[in-house]
Amino acid sequence: MLQALKSLRWAQPLRALSTSTAGTQPIVSPKTPAPEPDKLYSKLEIELRGIDPAVLKSYTWFATTAADHLGIEKGKCWSPRKAHHERMTLLKSVHIYKKHRVQYEVRTHFRYMNFHKLTGSTLDTFLEYIERNLPEGVALQASKTELQQIPEHLRQPPEQV
C-alpha cells in the first residue's frame, strides 16, 4: 500500500487551465505551492444533450478516441433509444375551433459516456480538452466520483465526548 501511495504523482499546477469548468477550484499561489497529493477519481460520467443525434455521435467518437490516446479506461457509452420530447399543443385558430390544434415540440437527445480510474491531473487535462472542443448546441454535464480517505478525526472513536 505504501508503494501505491508513493507512486501517486504530485499534482501539477494545472489549475490555470480549468476555466471552462463551472465550480470552485482552489487558486494556487504563485510562490512555491506546497506539493499537494493528486486526487483520485474512480469514475467520470459525461452526459451530453443535443438536438442532433449525429453531432452527439461524432462527439462521442472524438472523446473516446482522445481517451484511447491518453490511456484512459473507457466504460459504457450508450444513449437512450428515444429522445425526450417536450410538446406544446395550441389552438390553430386564435380562440375558437377547439378541435383543430397545432403541436410544437422540442426534442432533446441524450448520450452518456463513462470513464474509469483517472488521477486528478489526467481528469483535468482530459475534461479540459474535450470541453474545449464541444460543438455548438450541445450541453455537457460531467459527474466526477472522487475517492478520499477517511478524515483523521473519524478513524478512531472519540475518547471523551
Partner: peptide, 29 residues
C-alpha cells in the same frame, strides 16, 4: 500533463480499502 493510475489500486475492492469515502460533484457546460 497526465499521470498513470497508481499501482495497487487496480480493483474496486482494493481502492475501497484505502479510500472509502466517495465524493460526487458535477460540472455543467
Amino acid at each position: 500533463f497526465c499521470s498513470p493510475w497508481p499501482k495497487g489500486l487496480e480493483t474496486e475492492a482494493k481502492w475501497q480499502r484505502h479510500f472509502p469515502v466517495e465524493v460526487i460533484t458535477t460540472d455543467y457546460l
